[in-house]
Design a protein around this nucleic acid. Structure first.
Lengths: 190, 190
DNA sequence: CTACCGAGAGAACGATCGTTCTCCAGAGCG
DNA sequence: CGCTCTGGAGAACGATCGTTCTCTCGGTAG
């Protein structure tokens, strides 16, 4: 077990715990026990809890984005690639452990107190918006449509998180279809 | 100054502090100082911090809903009443103190640890969805459209909160117009 | 005036948390 | 075998938080 593997296990364990129970509710000792490392090694690999939190957010962004891109790349038609975003959301919402967007949760919990956390959430959302804009552009849509679809995806996440039902994904997807059709029609007419 | 007025001042002060700095970052002593009451009176009016948090969420729901209804009632045409929801969001986002939906923030912070907070957020969101559904129904739209518009409103809130820009309200409003037009057209064809 | 009651100020308490320190077992090496 | 050094276990520390307790003062009824 190399040092990097231990680092990864710590971050992966912290991700699970923080996501399931919120960050402030998980102490360093809980993490130490779950990751099966000593407190000394924890603090030799990370200078503080905040640095672990930021590493968790980086990992979460990378994995979430990778899953999204995999779902999108399963579709070949540009319009289908846009809609695949919402299929990915549905799969995610149906996960047992789904508890909303980890970045929104972290932002609500620590955004007002930790600039690093607030910035991580902002970057994650901005990169998602830019990715959606690329997909929409490939399908012949404009930036306004891209922004609207990103808002739909965002709303589906919090709706599914709080109401506990995953039906928001399908509703958002159908709304997206309507918006796409209307946008393409308006482009054709201009 | 009656006892009820003191209670109200405590809840109002707690609302401001919790919303601006998050709940866990505001201690009982901060609240005592800001509300200018003694700790003894605080605990004679509320049995615990959690009860204050729940009272804050009740107050926040009432005031937010009242503002929404006032904005909606400023419009007479059913379709305009639906769109007024998004105008209300824009006004809200442009507020200096805007930091996202307090219920989403509280849910991310304490939803996993406090069933009362989680439930308050669920109730708030459900009541909003039902209100939107009523407005949409009055405008001749169906429940699917209502759910889609509620998701748009939700997404606009978190987008505005995290990105810090209020443009999400206008984008959501224009998306809503498109969805409404498409829904009414599909109703007419069936 | 005096005895008493309520309320304010803030010290105190117990718990918890992030972080550091102490102590020691065991591996590597001469 | 003996020395050194790394790393583990967990106690300790200081800070903070929610909550309670103590002490005191001021007003008021008799």
């Amino acid at each position: 077990m190399t040092e990097d593997e231990i680092r990864d296990r710590i971050v992966a364990t912290a991700d699970e715990l923080y996501y399931a129970r919120s960050i402030q509710a998980v102490g360093m000792d809980d993490l130490r026990q779950a990751a099966e490392v000593s407190l000394k090694r924890l603090y030799s690999l990370f200078p503080s809890k905040e640095s672990i939190v930021l590493a968790v957010l980086v990992r979460r962004h990378e994995r979430w984005t990778a899953g999204l891109e995999a779902a999108v790349d399963g579709e070949k038609v540009p319009e289908g690639r846009v809609l695949a975003v919402f299929d990915y959301l549905l799969d995610w919402f149906d996960t047992d452990s789904f508890r909303g967007c980890g970045f929104i949760n972290a932002f609500g919990e620590l955004g007002a107190v930790s600039p690093g956390v607030a910035n991580a959430a902002r970057v994650h959302k901005r990169l998602f918006q830019e990715y959606v804009a690329r997909l929409v552009s490939d399908a012949g849509g404009g930036p306004e449509l891209a922004a609207q679809l990103a808002i739909l995806a965002e709303g589906a996440q919090t709706t599914a998180a709080i109401s506990g039902e995953s039906t928001a994904a399908g509703q958002a997807r159908r709304a997206a279809e309507t918006l796409i059709a209307a946008d393409l029609r308006s482009m054709a007419h201009s």
